[in-house]
Amino acid sequence: LVVLHPQSNKRCLVIGGSGFLGRHLVEKLLDRGYSVSVFDICQNDELPSVTFHQGDLCDKQALLSALKDVSLVFHCASPAPASDNRELFERVNIQGTSTVIQACKEAGVQKMVLTSSASVVFEGKDIKNGKESLPYAKKPIDYYTQTKIMQEKLVLEACDRESGFLTVAIRPHGIFGPRDPQLVPILVDTACRGKMKFIIGDGTNLVDFTFVENVVHGHVLAAERLKADSSVCGKAYHITNDEPIRFWDFMSEILVGLGYPAPRYHLPYLFVYGLALLLWMLALLLRPLISFKPTFTPMRVALAGTHHYYSCDRAKDDMGYTPVVSLKEGIKRTVESYPHLRRGA
């Protein structure tokens, strides 16, 4: 017997519900008694009681069909940050989001929760306990960040109490957890190729890594607090584990947990960043003739060598947010969920 949550007697749609975060969100919504459907470009696994709609974000008719009788939308579809496909980022994050907003308004959707990113304020320089009042990055360090800024602006500016279309943006940082197709598999692959021996900088830089269940918790809280008379409308919220950790300590815990050696040799940050910048420019110049992707992009070096952690005070005050899974427990669960990636497996 499913007990309906008092505010969940209407249908919700998770756009990007087949992805890493989307799938975890769908499972949590089902646990809370929501009636859930998913809209995505492809279907990974079927979930009983979940209606799947396959379609392109830029196809308004496909969206309208999926939005029938839906009152709440979670928009967490986005290409992986590691991609360098500018056209794809613009199509999904900007054109797609614009189409989603139009379709939501036409379909009479009342609430929309966007999965944004804390990187919208990051320019490759230290951010310590950053608040939402920080300005958007004037020089975004990749296409992902550039288009996420524009996406967040579109969604928050669409918030209209009078017409009854309410929006909010969640800015997670460093999402990790079971079934993550990016962070852990890439980390292990890099270690297997003998390229995880070096620490960029002095290794003391603090970073937020956020367990996926805490990100989901932030999304659900935002949706349930999103009302015309609430302070949540039209705002962005940082959602993290609220436990900044040294970047290289986190990487080491994952690697050692899976049986790989921790990185131990230090490389000067400015040297590696300069080299990454040079290789990135070279790749751009040679693109018409030869295609190669440098392992170390300026973005990756900046993320690995600077402080970037954020305050959750606004989410605590406005939504009553507190992380539901500690960083230590999150790392343990994540490591245990990848037995096939363990060294020698």
Rank of each mutant, 00 (worst) to 15 (best):
L327R: 03
Q61R: 12
G16W: 02
L30D: 00
R91M: 03
R32G: 13
L278V: 10
L183N: 12
M251V: 15
V113T: 01
V207A: 06
A236D: 07
G234D: 09
Y34K: 05
T334V: 01
D202S: 12
R179F: 12
D208N: 06
F122K: 01
P79V: 09
L156C: 07
L279F: 12
E123P: 01
P48L: 03
F209D: 02
T240A: 03
S71A: 10
V50N: 11
R193W: 08
K60E: 15
G19K: 07
E90W: 09
L1S: 15
G174M: 02
A276K: 05
D242H: 10
P140T: 13
V26I: 08
A223V: 10
N214Q: 06
I245Y: 06
K10N: 09
L47V: 14
Q146K: 12
K235F: 00
K60C: 13
S117K: 02
Q151F: 02
R300F: 11
V38G: 04
L270G: 05
T51Q: 13
V212H: 00
Y269L: 06
I245V: 15
D31M: 05
S326T: 15
T210W: 04
R86F: 07
V14C: 09
F296Q: 10
L286K: 11
A191G: 07
E152R: 00
S117G: 08
G17P: 12
D142M: 00
S230H: 04
V232C: 07
R23D: 12
S163C: 07
H53S: 06
R171C: 14
G320N: 12
E46Q: 15
L303F: 14
R91T: 14
E46M: 13
H217C: 02
F247T: 13
D229M: 00
L57W: 09
G174L: 02
E336D: 15
A302Q: 11
N214A: 11
V335P: 13
L183C: 10
D313I: 09
A137K: 01
G257L: 07
A82D: 05
S163G: 00
L64R: 03
V325S: 06
T297Y: 09
A191N: 08
H53W: 14
N44Y: 08
G320V: 05
T147N: 07
G17C: 11
E90G: 00
R32Y: 13
L341Q: 13
A228E: 11
L279Y: 07
E162N: 14
A345M: 13
H266W: 10
L187D: 00
D40G: 08
